[in-house]
């Protein structure tokens, strides 16, 4: 490894589920997609609390948080976005995948979610989107701290 390779490290992505729904097939499939695209995926089981997701994103220094939601747990997203911001993780990009009614999407986007992946999107779109958001997150990250 050399200094020049600093930016070539794989995207780090947290794939998780918040709320009470336990259907984790989708999050497992997406985690596998991202892994097979060369990303480093921190995977959690369902039922994470918002404070736990923030703590994991912080300790693991992830670029992207992906939340799978299949039964209204997406309504918790504004709380999660606020908590991430308060923890100094404003640069981390957040995407949601699963069942999000069209009329709720604006609520999520207003809260700062980067993208909602609806049913029917393919592997390429998810992988490409997450890679792009990861690159944006690294750009946004403050270099002030370390220089």
């Amino acid at each position: 490894m050399t200094l020049a390779q600093h930016d070539s490290f794989p995207p780090r992505v947290l794939v998780t589920k918040i709320g009470f729904d336990g259907h984790d097939r989708g999050s497992r499939i997406v985690a596998s997609f991202l892994r097979d695209a060369g990303m480093e995926v921190i995977y959690t089981p369902p039922w994470q609390e918002i404070s736990q997701v923030v703590r994991l994103a912080l300790e693991e220094d992830v670029d992207v948080v992906g939340v799978s939601s299949l039964s209204t747990d997406h309504l918790l997203m504004p709380k999660l976005m606020k908590a991430l911001d308060e923890a100094g993780l404003g640069h981390v990009k957040v995407v949601v995948g699963g069942i999000v009614p069209d009329e709720d999407e604006a609520l999520l986007m207003d809260a700062g979610v980067s993208k909602v992946f609806h049913p029917g999107v393919g592997r390429e779109e998810i992988v490409g989107g997450v890679a792009e958001y990861a690159a944006q997150a690294r750009q946004l990250r403050s270099e002030e701290l370390v220089t």
């Binding site: 794989p10 892994r35 097979d36 921190i42 995977y43 089981p45 404070s51 994991l56 693991e60």
Partner: peptide, 28 residues
Amino acid sequence: SPISGGALLGDRVRMNDHTDDDGVFIRS
């Protein structure tokens, strides 16, 4: 993965007792 270079980092799933404890810091 030797093929894709990707990884699924799942060790900390089993260390969940300590997520909220500031005295413990886990990095995968």
